[in-house]
């Protein structure tokens, strides 16, 4: 852990607190006695891609919902960018630059692809309560929206209804919409779930590209993706943090191997299994 923390050279002793964009302490969520997330203390370093992995039912998505305030934690605190956000509403944390995606692709199906991105741009740039104006004024966001669509390779789909896009393209659209808010911390919930090989490669390249200058926290099942993309990972099992650190280090942790695969010899073997 220590050697990993020291890789970022320019940070001195007092800089270490600010070094983490997101920190949780003792985060716990109980549903009628069932503890979905228990005493989770996460630390996400600014400017990194951080993976959150774990077997099914480990509490990853619950964790996501807690961090983005879609769920209220039973106990514990969340600090984002030096500010306590534990009691905030989801729309408020989104306004602070902590923006999430969803596991089920979340687009506005009857709006066009371009309009989907514009809805996000419109929020940030104001005028969203203007009920007396024509929506033609929204065309001023078209250029920026088209840039974002070009970024994710959706230019030719701009005028299509978002609901008609193939699955992989919907995920790309969702990332474009999230990027429209220029988030400081982007939370991606299984961005490659249910995708074909080509789509996975495209999304991986995309995430790597858009992570420039921001922090990404992603839940991911595909360990190959995690290995290729993430600077650090946190392993959750049964709602608890099992290990945290760089992938190479965590993947050798015998406890992680046991939790993830039972008796299987190597974690990379599971990547193949998860992928198949």
């Amino acid at each position: 852990m220590l050697s990993y923390a020291a890789t970022d050279g320019e940070l001195g002793g007092e800089g270490r607190v600010q070094d983490y964009i997101l920190e949780t302490e003792g985060l716990t969520k109980e549903f009628r006695g069932f503890v979905a997330v228990s005493d989770v203390s996460l630390r996400i370093r600014r400017g990194t891609i951080h993976g959150l992995i774990g077997p099914n039912g480990a509490g990853k998505t619950t964790c996501f919902n807690l961090l983005t305030k879609f769920l209220q934690p039973s106990r514990g605190t969340i600090r984002y960018d030096g500010r306590e956000i534990t009691r905030m509403k989801p729309a408020e944390v989104a306004r602070l630059g902590l923006v999430r995606s969803f596991q089920i692709s979340a687009v506005f199906p009857h709006l066009t692809v371009l309009e989907n991105v514009r809805v996000a741009l419109q929020r940030q740039r104001g005028g969203s309560f203007d009920f007396w104006r024509s929506d033609a004024v929204l065309r001023r966001y078209d250029d920026r929206a088209r840039e974002l669509l070009a970024d994710v390779g959706l230019t030719t789909y701009a005028e299509a209804a978002a609901g008609t896009l193939p699955y992989g393209r919907k995920r790309a659209l969702e990332i474009a919409t999230t990027l429209a808010l220029d988030p400081t911390l982007m939370l991606l919930d299984e961005p490659t779930a249910g995708m074909t090989h080509e789509d996975v490669d495209r999304i991986v390249a995309l995430v790597r590209r858009v992570a420039q200058g921001r922090t990404v926290l992603m839940v991911e099942h595909n360990l190959k993706v995690v290995e290729g993309l993430c600077d650090a990972i946190t392993v959750l099992t049964r709602g608890r943090v099992l290990a945290e650190g760089p992938y190479a280090q965590v993947s050798r942790n015998p406890e992680v191997i046991a939790a993830y695969l039972g008796t299987d010899p190597g974690i990379s073997g599971a990547a193949e299994a998860a992928h198949a």
């Binding site: 983005t68 879609f70 989801p90 729309a91 408020e92 989104a94 306004r95 923006v99 999430r100 995606s101 969803f102 979340a106 687009v107 506005f108 199906p109 009857h110 709006l111 309009e115 514009r118 809805v119 996000a120 419109q122 929020r123 940030q124 005028g127 969203s128 309560f129 203007d130 009920f131 007396w132 104006r133 024509s134 929506d135 004024v137 929204l138 919409t177 808010l181």
Partner: peptide, 26 residues
């Protein structure tokens, strides 16, 4: 006009996918 205004566009987004609209900060 309300339906086809910037405000109406947000209303449509909320009706189509409220959690997503929330996650965009609305």
């Amino acid at each position: 006009r309300v339906i086809h205004s910037p405000f109406g566009q947000v209303l449509t987004a909320i009706r189509e996918n409220e959690p997503r609209a929330v996650s965009l900060g609305y």
